[in-house]
């Protein structure tokens, strides 16, 4: 997947209680041509958060009130995903371990090297865009799947398992003709052109065919 140089919908959240640092990160992100929002505390950021879009969060570990690590954990609890870059003026092993375990993209020390934050933010945005698209696709597929009748869902599961029409007919105790009708509906509702595509969709949705 190619990365658009300036995805209009992507955003960089900057959460740091040092005003000068906030402004500096913003200046860099602006040079990147990506929009940014900055907050002096984790609490203010959470209050202003208005929904999922491709995003990269740049935050400090030590802040007045909630720390950057606690913010990371809060986001996980709330099921909000985004790329997270943790900055710190004093990296300790426990801090690093906790940040990485919470799924941080990277943890870097202040002051960082030239290009280091730039590259990290770009990588963070790319990663989250991919994740975002996958999330979108999965949501879309789930919606289509929900439109299937229970019978059609049964037929789909057997198709993915690789059963031929007549095996399906026998298993479901109906005519081959009926099975064919169901198959057609499944293809139509899932907007799939081939069995291979259906299987791909099933994998993307995490439906594991029961092979037993």
């Amino acid at each position: 997947m190619s990365m658009p140089s300036a995805g209009e919908d992507a955003v960089v959240y900057i959460v740091d209680d040092d005003e000068q640092v906030r402004k500096a990160v913003m200046a860099l992100v602006e040079a990147m041509g990506v929009s940014s929002e900055s907050y002096p505390s984790a609490e203010e950021f959470l209050r202003a958060y208005d929904g999922r879009r491709p995003a990269c969060l740049v935050t400090d570990v030590r802040m007045l009130g909630m720390s950057g690590l606690e913010l990371q954990e809060r986001l996980l609890d709330m099921g909000l995903s985004m790329s997270v870059i943790v900055l710190t003026a004093f990296a300790t092993t426990p801090t690093t371990v906790r940040a990485m375990r919470n799924g941080a993209l990277t943890l870097m020390e202040k002051p960082c090297n030239d290009d280091e934050l730039w590259d990290a933010v770009r990588r963070g945005l790319t990663n989250d865009r991919e994740n975002y698209e996958l999330e979108q696709q999965r949501a879309n597929l789930k919606q289509r799947l929900a439109e299937l009748t229970p019978k059609e869902r049964e037929v789909l599961d057997l198709m993915i398992a690789g059963d031929a029409n007549k095996v399906i007919a026998r298993k479901l105790d109906c005519s081959i003709r009926t099975v064919e009708n169901h198959r057609q509906k499944v293809f139509q509702k899932m907007s799939a052109d081939s069995l291979a595509e259906l299987v791909r969709m099933a994998v993307a949705m995490g439906i594991v065919p029961n092979l037993a």
């Binding site: 000068q20 500096a24 040079a31 004093f90 030239d114």
Partner: peptide, 24 residues
């Protein structure tokens, strides 16, 4: 010494931002 890292970090990022703006 840690406290000094904050403005140094900011200065470093501003410098990079300036460079990138000029490069573009």
């Amino acid at each position: 010494a840690h406290e000094i890292h904050q403005p140094l970090h900011a200065a470093q990022l501003f410098a990079e931002a300036a460079r990138r703006n000029l490069e573009m």
